[in-house]
Amino acid sequence: MKVMIRKTATGHSAYVAKKDLEELIVEMENPALWGGKVTLANGWQLELPAMAADTPLPITVEARKL
């Protein structure tokens, strides 16, 4: 699914347009965010693609819901 990742004042957030859902990312498998699992505030887990740590945000990526 397409997910937009952006930086907020409190960390990172994910927006899933198909579900009209925006949630804070509360847990990251990798400190650089990319190439691992993230957990959203509502409990969803997404697998993000591997990208460079300095990838500019906001960005829309293809993520997989676990």
Rank of each mutant, 00 (worst) to 15 (best):
G35K: 04
A17Q: 12
G43N: 03
I25F: 02
K65T: 11
K37D: 03
A32Y: 14
G43C: 06
A32I: 09
A50C: 11
V3K: 01
M28F: 11
V38F: 04
A32P: 05
E29D: 10
K7R: 12
M51F: 06
L46D: 01
K65P: 10
N42M: 02
D54Q: 07
I5F: 02
E27Y: 14
G36P: 01
E47R: 09
P49I: 05
L66I: 14
R64V: 13
Q45H: 09
A14Y: 12
S13Q: 09
L40I: 02
E22C: 13
W34K: 01
E23Y: 15
G43P: 00
G35H: 03
K2C: 15
V3Y: 00
A9E: 12
A50W: 15
P49G: 06
H12S: 03
P58S: 02
K18D: 15
G11S: 05
H12R: 07
P56Q: 11
D54G: 10
K37Y: 12
G36N: 03
G36W: 05
E23G: 05
A17K: 10
P58M: 05
D54V: 05
P58T: 04
P49Y: 05
L21K: 11
P58Q: 03
I5N: 02
H12T: 08
L57D: 03
A41D: 01
G11H: 05
L66G: 04
T39P: 01
A52S: 12
A52W: 05
M28V: 09
I5L: 05
A53W: 13
R64M: 11
T55Y: 03
N30F: 12
S13N: 06
A50R: 11
K7W: 08
A32H: 14
A52R: 10
D20M: 10
P31V: 09
P56S: 09
I59K: 08
A17G: 10
M4F: 07
M4W: 03
Y15R: 10
L21M: 13
T55A: 06
E29V: 06
N42R: 00
T10V: 12
W44C: 14
E23V: 15
V3H: 01
W44F: 05
I59A: 12
K7S: 08
M28R: 10
G43I: 03
E27W: 15
I25V: 07
D20I: 07
Y15W: 11
Q45M: 13
G35P: 05
V16W: 15
L33M: 14
G43M: 02
L57N: 03
T39R: 10
A32F: 14
P56F: 07
I25D: 00
L40C: 04
T60H: 06
Y15K: 09
V26A: 05
P31Q: 10
G35E: 05
D20V: 07
A63Q: 02
Q45V: 15
W44K: 00
P56N: 08
I25L: 04
L40E: 00
V3A: 01
W44Y: 03
G43W: 03
D54T: 09
I59W: 07
M4L: 12
E22G: 06
P56A: 11
L46A: 00
P31D: 12
L66E: 04
A17Y: 15
L24Y: 09
W34I: 04
T10W: 13
K19A: 15
A53R: 09
G11P: 00
E62M: 14
H12Y: 15
N30R: 09
L24E: 14
T39Q: 07
A53K: 10
E62N: 13
P49Q: 03
V16H: 04
D54W: 07
L46Y: 07
E29N: 05
H12F: 15
A14P: 01
I59S: 01
N42K: 00
A32N: 15
K65C: 15
E47Y: 13
W34Y: 02
T60P: 02
K7T: 06
L48C: 00
W44V: 07
S13L: 12
G43R: 02
D20R: 11
L33R: 03
N30C: 12
L57W: 07
A9P: 13
L33E: 03
E22L: 12
G11N: 03
P49N: 01
L21Q: 11
K2P: 09
L66Y: 09
K65R: 14
A41N: 07
V61I: 11
G11I: 03
P31G: 12
M1L: 14
P58G: 02
E27A: 13
I59R: 06
V61D: 00
N42C: 09
K65H: 13
K19P: 10
V3I: 11
E47F: 12
I25W: 02
T10Y: 13
A63M: 06
M1E: 08
R64D: 05
D20N: 13
R6L: 11
H12D: 04
T8R: 08
